[in-house]
Design a protein around this nucleic acid. Structure first.
Ligand SMILES: [Zn+2]
Ligand SMILES: [Zn+2]
Ligand SMILES: [Zn+2]
Ligand SMILES: [Zn+2]
Lengths: 160, 160
DNA sequence: CAGCGAACTGTTATGTTATTACACCGGAGC
DNA sequence: GCTCCGGTGTAATAACATAACAGTTCGCTG
């Protein structure tokens, strides 16, 4: 599994790639990446962290793209439904997807100190819970996997 | 892993055992299992499902045990902190623990149809995410694992 | 081209979940 | 008796989320 989120990276291309992947996916699927939806995705990619719906709404409002909660929630619903973003239940917040386009079950590492989030993969069928579920006949459709702890950088700072 | 929650069981003893385990744990640890706290735990055990804080508060209010949100939230905080109950992030709700006293990392199977919840174990260090986290130096302290799907009974009903 | 429906947006209002802040109470220890 | 501390009672508010409905655009079809 490839983990992303805590290491340094070329952020400009990270934003560009995210938007491009979404645009391409929408083109193929006949979905509309409208200005609001595109901008919300950009905001998530730019900030590169988990953002609450109202944080995003503040930015939209500043830019004249919408001022009421449904505007933000509708765009986020679209992004989540189509796999361009994920909801972090633990934080009531949203992050841009690191593997857009790919069909995947995300798992997250959330730093409780700096609030940054790394996204990885967790195959729900292969782990202990998945096997036990299969054993009792429970059919898993979706799994929320969110680990909380300290990222490498914050462990460093703790020691200082 | 032992999964509990969907099968039939002796519910009276299930309630009694849960309260007894908590009472015993509190006695040993010098914690106060006050009337409100005990009653909230009983409510969770009686209903044997995930309950919102306000659902619980409604019951407390009917019984004259408190009418304002902090009463319910404080009791729930106590129960969660001491391992007698768990919060289900996906549902903004709470369930009584099935393994009180034992030190464990719970994982849940949530039926999207009947809303019942089964609790199992998920060792965060042993799965794919845990190994990847260790590889990049992320220290996992706690993990939310919540699988959503259809329980055996609801799959049956679907077929009818 | 008129009429229509689907998808999206704008806005108001409201519902749901959770916390802050402060007054009060009662027992333990001195 | 006094003080500290953990717990409770309550009001007010914050934070998160949705319902409902009017208005727009645009492509389709008669
Ligand atoms: Zn993803
Ligand atoms: Zn960190
Ligand atoms: Zn448990
Ligand atoms: Zn079910």
């Amino acid at each position: 599994m490839e983990l992303q989120g805590f290491e340094r990276h070329d952020h400009a291309s990270c934003i560009r790639d995210g938007v491009d992947a979404a645009a391409e996916h929408c083109r193929r699927e006949g979905l509309q990446l409208t200005p609001v939806r595109r901008r919300v995705l950009e905001i998530l990619l730019e900030r590169h962290r988990a953002l609450g719906a109202y944080d995003i709404l503040d930015t939209l409002r500043d830019e004249g793209l919408g001022s009421q909660p449904p505007v933000a929630y509708r765009a986020l619903d679209f992004l989540v439904k189509n796999g361009f973003a994920h909801r972090i239940e633990r934080l009531n917040a949203f992050v841009a997807c690191n593997h857009p386009g790919e069909n995947h079950s995300p798992a997250f590492l959330i730093c409780r100190k700096c609030d940054r989030v790394a996204e990885g993969q967790a195959d729900p069928a292969s782990d202990m819970l998945g096997r036990s579920a299969a054993a009792i006949g429970f059919r898993i459709e979706r799994a929320v996997v969110e680990a909380e702890g300290l990222c490498p950088a914050c462990q460093e700072n703790d020691r200082k």
